[in-house]
Nucleic acid binder design. Structure first.
Lengths: 362, 362
DNA sequence: TACTGTCGTTAACTCGCGTTACTAACGCGA
DNA sequence: TCGCGTTAGTAACGCGAGTTAACGACAGTA
């Protein structure tokens, strides 16, 4: 049984008017239509169960009331309690308020030509690129084409680039300032490398904190996982044992990631390293993964759901042609201090932010 | 700068042929078109950056290559590491393989008239209802309308209802059999009530295990959270302390839920109850929530991603008009035995499935 | 009576593409 | 030369809506 849909012309015939009249009534452009006719049309439409045809409406109006979403790795993001899941929650809320639906593009980011084609086909009014893409060819191509796009959690150098992100520089700064305040002088910094804007920004913030405390730059021991693609638990563990074997040894780790560092931390007791006594640890994102780690991780919290809602606000602003006050909206971050940096027996080892010139061993 | 899209007719004019010819070439229906013409059209189309218009194509063909998804509470599902997230991962994978995109309906389930209208508007070729809905009016309405629909994780009494679910009856059976085998005779069973198919089925399985072991039915102490809507931690804790204060006291809990029971279990040490020594606990779903509970929970695992892929398979089968072998596909479950039912010091208290007629105190 | 101006309504065009049915041109054999 | 078949290509219609421009009816005026 194929679905027999009621068309506007069916309503028109049943109501004894032309299709144009029905269109006017249903779309609210009922100027000049007498109340009686209007009510009759509405009644007949309801009785017959009329629904507009989505494709026809989109073709005629050029609008779909749909927003597209591209995730750079859909399944992995959804699988775990990742930051993207929280962003999506905000996106959902906001899209519902604006009465838009969400089209999730299933194509992989590596197949960006396919995505480009889909996005240009007009199946949506605008697109959220939720990512932190590397080797990104899609974003500039879309911007060149003039499609309404908002980048979430990253941005690129382009005059037309609109984006929403948290203040990554401040995040790096807060993380480092915290461990410096707690007396640490040799600090490992795990990050994706500088090809990603958030990696670059967090490193910059970290360096600012070091400089502010008068610590030499080389005390910040950088480890970029860029060369290996994704950070693995093994890679982190090896890097960490290398760092711990050196003199002076690092006493704190700041990691721009959450899942792997959690695994590493939970494996540390096996090799006789205690957190935070032997090693202080700070992660990013501060989702349940950090909160439920043993011990719970101090973490830089991002307002993930707000990022989602702000991105939708911005995208719909672009779609509806409003002038937007800013191209890049940066939301503030917060440091959630937990056990991984606070030894139970010590409350305050070091006075607040006393600048330290010489390095000190942990 | 509005997006100026290249239309088929633009390509036709540039290539010096009619739009029909272009249509034939691009859609592969190039019978009778000489190779030279064909190649010229393809070359011009590529050079001009032609992309089909999604709405026009959908209007002309009646197909969208899009599947709709309705979640009964989108944001809460996405927020946490819930079973729906895992199902969605499977849905994504499968949709990508079929080259379909996913339209997530943002409207709330309570506003089911809006959802009904959207689904009938033809914005998608078919719809996945991912749920466990109660007071469900949407599903029967859609089935009556003849829209291709697949129910995920639930089903209703209707000749046209297609669904994918796990074998809930077997899940209830496995959970109960396990605790009975471990010697428990007074068992609490937390479930949503019998208005939901999965609650009904799991209870049925639980009763089967009781009967098989020769245990009287009243030894299964039922607690339905239906009357309070969603199970809360407080409600469970109260119910549990009531059960533990009774004589004979329950010694095991089987809970058709994961998040709340985890919270309850982790709060038990505060009231001096040890798991599993004082109380054995079995949850459902067996996601990371159960695995990372302290202690890790024995749990009935469902093949969540497979449910997602199977649902897409079934829906696309319906969309493409294939005859499907079965209306309700039931995927097997598995019991993941963890510490919450296995005391460290005891390996096997009771021989396997020895039928016990009389009730025994824990 | 004719002319003007509303009011209510609709014919006709548009959106971009699939598809059917038809034509013009060409080649070949009788 | 006529007739036929084949090849190469297109005109025209439809999908279901929005939208513009114009029409007929009727009332009011000159």
């Amino acid at each position: 049984m194929p679905v027999r849909r009621v068309r506007m012309i069916d309503v028109a015939e049943a109501a004894g008017v032309s299709r144009t009249t029905v269109s006017f009534v249903l779309s609210g452009r009922d100027a000049g239509i007498p109340l009686e006719t209007k009510q009759r049309v509405l009644r007949v439409a309801r009785q017959m169960g009329y629904r507009h045809n989505d494709a026809a409406l989109a073709l005629a109006t050029g609008r779909t009331r749909r927003l597209g979403i591209v995730l750079n790795d859909p399944t992995s993001f959804i699988r775990s309690d990742s930051y993207v899941a929280h962003i999506l929650a905000g996106v959902f809320d906001s899209a519902l308020r604006y009465n838009y639906n969400l089209l999730m593009h299933t194509a992989r980011y590596t197949d960006w030509h396919a995505l480009y084609g889909e996005i240009l086909s007009g199946a949506t009014d605008g697109t959220l690129l939720v990512g932190r893409f590397e080797h990104d060819e899609l974003t500039p191509a879309l911007l060149e084409a003039g499609v309404p796009v908002v980048c979430v959690s990253y941005q690129i150098e382009h005059p037309g680039c609109y984006s929403v992100d948290c203040d990554n520089e401040q995040g790096g700064y807060l993380a480092l300032r915290h461990v410096i305040e707690r007396g640490h002088r040799q600090i490992a910094f795990f990050y994706p490398g500088e090809t990603l804007s958030w990696g670059r920004d967090r490193l910059q913030g970290a360096r600012r904190a070091m400089a502010e405390a008068g610590l030499p730059e080389q005390n910040l021991r950088l480890f970029a996982w860029r060369e290996i693609g994704q950070p693995t638990q093994e890679w982190m563990q090896e890097a960490l044992s290398f760092l711990l074997s050196q003199k002076p040894s690092v006493t704190a780790v700041v990691c721009c990631e959450e899942g792997r560092i959690r695994q590493v931390v939970e494996a540390l007791p096996d090799v006789g390293i205690r957190v935070p006594d032997d090693l202080a640890v700070v992660s990013f994102n501060s989702t349940e993964q950090s909160a439920r780690c043993r011990p719970p991780l101090t973490s830089v919290a991002q307002p993930l759901e707000e990022i989602g809602t702000a991105a939708v606000d911005m995208l719909i602003g672009r779609v509806e042609g409003r002038d937007l006050p800013e191209h890049c909206r940066r939301l503030p971050v917060r440091l959630d201090v937990r056990d991984s940096t606070i030894p139970a027996r010590s409350l305050a080892l070091v006075p607040d932010r006393s600048p330290v010139v010489e390095q000190a061993s942990g």
